[in-house]
Design a protein around this nucleic acid. Structure first.
Lengths: 110, 110
DNA sequence: ATTTATTATCGTAATATTGCAATATACAAA
DNA sequence: TTTGTATATTGCAATATTACGATAATAAAT
């Protein structure tokens, strides 16, 4: 098999999974953290920052972009990348729902 | 290659990536949401809830457990699963850092 | 002791991911 | 027009993931 049964889950579950999966790699975490620090950057900045080749970083950027975590706009002969609020807010909402119900000690655990 | 260069990133970046990756699958999102609803459950409850075989669900539960998102304790001849606060809080902290810096409109974007 | 219920593990197949080098594309500047 | 800069794409190899059926392991119940 090797195929996720996407059609069996809700739209929200699939969307969340895509976003979280995109964030589920140390290089992409590093990219997001770098963007938090410098606000915006081009691909080449990351080539100097991370221990990966240019082509690999370009692919990680594409994955983050397709998940809606970053946006990239053409600027001259380079491309400016920055974070996108919307989808990070989705994760925030999900996780805070988890954590808040846990911290209220409502949950009877084992 | 096909191998993530784990040793090149910080401990925090790797830990976060593991947790987020574990949450990056609709079935595992569904499991977490189900646990939020029912507090605790056994594997068989999920077999009736999700469109997956018992063995597949068992593997998803293992992955969530290894990432520290849930815990499972033996209870008679079954196993009781429930959410674990600690690691969800880690994600929460990361994402809220992202979102807060974005919502403050501090970021100059493209 | 045997059956039943619950979960884990093994083996397998299909697909996806990770990473790089090489190449292609696009634009700016000389 | 050629050169340089920045990014994307392609092709490939190694590894990981997803899912299932079959089988094992464990404990409770009959």
């Amino acid at each position: 098999m090797g195929l996720t049964k996407t059609e069996q889950y809700s739209k929200m579950q699939n969307e969340l999974a895509v976003i979280l999966k995109a964030l589920g790699h140390p290089a992409r975490i590093a990219i997001v953290e770098y963007l938090l620090k410098v606000d915006q950057c081009i691909c080449n900045d990351l080539v100097e920052e991370l221990p990966l080749s240019q082509s690999t970083i370009s692919q990680h950027l594409l994955e983050l972009k397709q998940a809606g975590i970053i946006q990239g706009t053409i600027e001259g002969n380079s491309k400016c990348y920055c974070l996108q609020k919307q989808n990070l807010a989705k994760v925030m909402k999900f996780v805070s729902k988890c954590v808040s119900s846990l911290s209220l000690d409502k949950i009877k655990c084992c």
